[in-house]
Simulated scan of single mutants.
Amino acid sequence: MSVIQETTPSTSALVLFSGGQDSATCLAWALERFERVETVGFDYGQRHLVEMQARQAVRDGMARALPAWAGRLGEDHVIDLTGYGRIAESALTADRKIEMDARGLPTTFVPGRNLIFLVAAAALADRRGLEVLVGGMCETDYSGYPDCRHETMEVMARALSLGLDKPVVIDTPLMWLTKAETWALAHRIGGDGLVELIVEDSHTCYRGDRAHRHAWGYGCGECPACELRAAGYEEWVSAR
């Protein structure tokens, strides 16, 4: 799904890349489509450094999993947003219990995280000459985060287009996919090799658990992120 349609085909993209299942799938999706692909990650004071480590492991493995497009993968960028993370405290940046808050939002919600990420990514893309922003936001299977919604992406693309005085395209290929369909998309793009890379090296667990290995990857198996990933994997495997 693209927000703000292009008038001419784009050849380059900047992938918002966390090293998780969704962003790994989006990176593969972008490599399949664009001639030049760069990645950007954000250090916003995450409690678990394993997320930043997973980014590099997945990037390194992507060239092996998708050798036909390895030459398309360009530079990686990491933006320091630790000051923002201290302001927008959550269970991902502080020692807090994972539960629902008074608004009905999970305490893993980092207020405005995707909005901040998109502004920073758009500024970087502008300076790097990259035409499309690619993100793993998803409205079908998500943890209740309002900044993952399609409507939010539409408004952000419009605001960025006005603020930068040029069309800003945000591609969200997972927006209407279930987690099972996300596994299926990865398999269609890169077969068993890409799926194995995502299982082995990507990281989703909110608790930063890399001690427990499951069929779907590493994680505690109990937090909402693990439960969603595991259920999607089981549904995909059962449907194959």
Rank of each mutant, 00 (worst) to 15 (best):
D60L: 12
M62R: 02
R64K: 14
R64L: 12
A65P: 09
L66A: 03
A68I: 00
W69T: 15
W69D: 04
A70R: 12
R72M: 02
L73K: 03
L73G: 00
G74P: 06
E75N: 14
D76A: 15
H77P: 03
H77K: 04
D80Y: 10
D80K: 08
L81T: 11
T82M: 09
T82S: 13
G83Q: 12
G85L: 08
R86T: 08
R86D: 15
I87T: 14
I87V: 15
E89V: 15
S90C: 11
L92N: 09
L92Q: 08
T93V: 10
A94M: 12
A94I: 00
R96V: 03
K97F: 07
K97E: 15
E99M: 13
E99Q: 15
M100T: 11
M100H: 11
D101S: 06
A102F: 10
A102C: 03
A102Q: 13
R103H: 14
R103V: 01
G104Q: 09
L105F: 13
L105H: 12
P106C: 07
P106F: 07
P106D: 06
T107R: 02
T107A: 06
T108H: 02
T108Y: 04
F109P: 00
V110Q: 06
V110E: 06
G112I: 08
I116M: 15
F117Q: 06
V119D: 08
V119S: 14
A120L: 04
A120K: 14
A121H: 09
A122W: 05
A122C: 13
A123Y: 00
L124Y: 04
A125V: 04
R127S: 13
R128W: 01
R128A: 13
G129K: 05
G129T: 10
G129N: 08
L130P: 11
L130M: 10
E131N: 00
E131W: 01
V132W: 07
V132G: 05
V134T: 03
V134Y: 06
